[in-house]
């Protein structure tokens, strides 16, 4: 039995141009947990994610994915057990058709063609996009692209799912559908996001990054209620906790006051 854990100990990474990406990041995500990774732009979220599947290598510190400490020898096993959904589906969907794209991973990992076919169809069904199999990826809507990206990763049957901004640029209904889909997955999940409402809904735990360091690692409820802390980390209470009534501009918190202009205009 493998343990679907992700453990980072004191990761440091500096980009070649001198920008500090990670500055001593440590955490441990255990089997079956769903963790939100939040922080302002440039806090190091994407840098951290790129470490998780070995796209970047930390200058200092160690990383354990599942049963393996991440190194060049077991890179393939790690990449198979940790499925990564990139922020921009156009980067992830590069094959001629949706079917080929989803089959890309399984075939690379040595599945036979018949097995791969079955796996692809199952993954597409699970992601709710079975009907798109024959379409070229560039013809899809943003929401469809996102679901297909998730299917490409599901087809490799990973133990751990890592998603980078899964709800960005989705319309409300596609976002809702995605959240419901993610709820059904039993994988260990790490979700980097600015969508704090989603984080609240999907993740019991949140890790906050700020300037390449972990500034908080606790229950999502707890973190998102601490207004002073959120403010210090360039974050804001999720909308569902702000208790805004759009019809009463006086109740809007002071830092979003300029929006009241819009509520007056009709």
């Amino acid at each position: 039995m493998t343990h679907h854990i992700v453990e980072a100990i004191d990761l440091h990474y500096t980009y070649p141009d001198g920008t500090v990406g990670l500055n001593g990041v440590s955490f441990r995500v255990s089997h079956g947990e769903s963790v939100a990774l939040v922080g302002e732009n440039g806090a190091g979220k994407s840098t951290l994610l790129l470490h998780l599947n070995g796209c970047l290598t930390a200058a200092q510190g160690t990383l354990r994915i599942g049963d393996y400490p991440l190194n060049s020898k077991n890179l393939n096993e790690v990449r198979r057990s940790l499925g990564m959904v990139f922020q921009n589906p156009d980067d992830q969907l590069f094959m001629p058709t949706v079917f080929d794209d989803v089959a890309f991973g399984p075939l690379n990992f040595g599945m036979t063609k018949d097995e791969a076919k079955q796996t692809v169809l199952r993954a597409l069904e699970t992601a709710g996009v079975g009907h798109l199999a024959k379409r070229p990826p560039y013809k899809l809507s943003q929401g469809e692209k996102r679901s297909v990206s998730i299917a490409t990763v599901l087809a490799m049957s990973p133990d751990i799912l890592v998603l980078d901004e899964p709800t960005s640029s989705l319309d409300p209904r596609s976002r809702r559908r995605l959240i419901e889909l993610l709820k059904t997955f039993e994988h260990t999940k790490i979700i980097a996001t600015h969508d704090l409402d989603m984080a609240l809904e999907l993740c019991e735990r949140t890790i906050v990054l700020h300037g390449g360091c972990v500034t908080a690692d606790a229950s999502t409820q707890e973190i998102l209620q601490d207004e002073a802390f959120l403010h210090a980390n360039s974050l804001e209470k999720p909308l569902c906790m702000q208790k805004i009534s759009l019809w009463d501009p006086n109740k809007i918190p002071h830092h979003t006051h300029h929006h009241s202009d819009y509520t007056h205009k009709k």
Partner: peptide, 22 residues
């Protein structure tokens, strides 16, 4: 930039220089 991101995405799914099509 995009080429690099795509290449990363390919590596994450076990790309080793071969393309298999069904």
């Amino acid at each position: 930039d995009r080429a690099e991101r795509i290449y990363r995405a390919m590596c994450c799914r076990g790309f080793d220089g071969h393309f298999y099509l069904i």
